[in-house]
Design a protein around this nucleic acid. Structure first.
Lengths: 223, 223
DNA sequence: AAGTCAACACTACCATACAAGTATGGCGAT
DNA sequence: ATCGCCATACTTGTATGGTAGTGTTGACTT
């Protein structure tokens, strides 16, 4: 009865980790959920071992807490850690934006426009998931174009603390984010490091505006 | 014959990962080394499973490359990635230094002096390993004191690309690094954000000075 | 009736066994 | 002599059984 599983990305462990990560970010698995190795293994039709490795990966990204001999639970959203993550991300990405304004790889520059168009489409369709995927692609391409792909790796580790809250705040306000992306690109094209950095800073401050509201609306998701 | 293993930190997998990480950083396991799950398992007196999880952890930190059905090898030092890592780290740590100069947690401030003294002792003894341990502790305490422990987590992920080269450059020049640490603290105490950031920037540039020399001396370690 | 303790169910963790893919050495055909 | 092919000895990936630790429940004692 199960659909044939196309191993989207190598091993079963990686596939399951990606699926669980997605479920956690979209809040299909809300904070506090108990994740049992055996249970997930049965659902996914694999043994406990790949599931275990997936959970270890999620624990390393701080999506779940593994309590030895007790259980594994999805961690709650921490406003404190979100603020810290935003701070670190601002430090990295404003530097990346500055560097991008000084010299940007042409092939990456060409892809940016496509990404932004696709993201605008997703925003028009109110498609949270693909919107966030293209959001990641935008920032990743920016880092790549600035000749610092490692920056995106650092950011993606940090982003885990923000993703779920971002998913909530994306309710009806995706279009402004695309505009902010375009403003960043405009400053980069104008070879204005300060302008690019400031545009990026404003973009990253956006999340702070919506945060109090979603925290008030969904207090059970926060710690 | 084997010494009684004190499970220094929880599970066998974590212990083995820490041991391997240390061996890689100290170049006891030089780049290009082939790591066999079975072989390590036998040496450590455990099964393949914990070893496997340790290797997955090391792969996530980009210390090793796992080639499915082929083998696992220690990656070579990449000058390009080192430069990128330094760039990202400068972005984060100068921001942390700025923030520290604006407001610093007193209890963390108290520990800093102890750390610096211990590090100075290690430098006098020419003890690379403990020196690097206290170096990490200095930067971690700085991030903690600046109310951004997440910054250290981001840095420690990035640092993997620099640690081995740093280990090499530590040959006869540990004392200046302690002085640079002290300069950072002095600027923080003086409540000078710009001064702290600049001191940090200079500190992080230090590695660049020695890099060409070690690369020329040990070309086989680099890619 | 309230407190104590023992048996149980559950967990993550580890060991072992099996499956599947890859590099390699040697053999045979061209 | 060189090229192609196959058997074999590796590798990582997955499945399953067993162990030790933890939370809970219910019976027993006070």
């Amino acid at each position: 009865m199960d659909a044939i599983r196309v191993p989207s990305s190598g091993s079963a462990a990686q596939r399951i980790e990606a699926e669980l990560r997605r479920a956690i970010i979209t809040l299909a698995l809300p904070p506090g959920s108990r994740l049992s190795e055996a249970e997930i293994a049965e659902q996914q039709g694999v043994s406990r071992q790949p599931v275990r490795e997936a959970l270890i990966g999620l624990a390393r990204a701080r999506f779940v807490d593994i309590l030895p001999q007790r259980g594994t639970v999805v961690v709650r959203i921490s406003v404190k850690k979100m603020m810290e993550a935003r701070f670190v991300r601002e430090a990295i990405e404003t530097a990346v934006a500055r560097r991008a304004a000084e010299a940007f790889d042409p092939s990456a520059r060409a892809r940016i426009d496509d990404v932004l168009d696709l993201q605008a489409n997703a925003a028009a369709r109110e498609d949270h998931e693909t919107f966030q995927r293209y959001d990641e692609m935008f920032h990743a391409t920016l880092a790549e174009g600035a000749s610092c792909p490692l920056a995106w790796q650092a950011i993606s580790d940090i982003k885990a603390h923000m993703d779920r809250a971002c998913h909530l705040t994306l309710a009806g306000s995706m279009a402004p984010l695309v505009d902010q992306h375009r403003a960043i690109v405009t400053a980069i094209d104008a070879r204005s490091p300060d302008g690019a950095a400031e545009a990026m800073r404003l973009h990253l401050c956006e999340i702070l505006r919506m945060l109090p509201r979603v925290e008030a609306e969904h207090p059970e998701l926060f710690e």
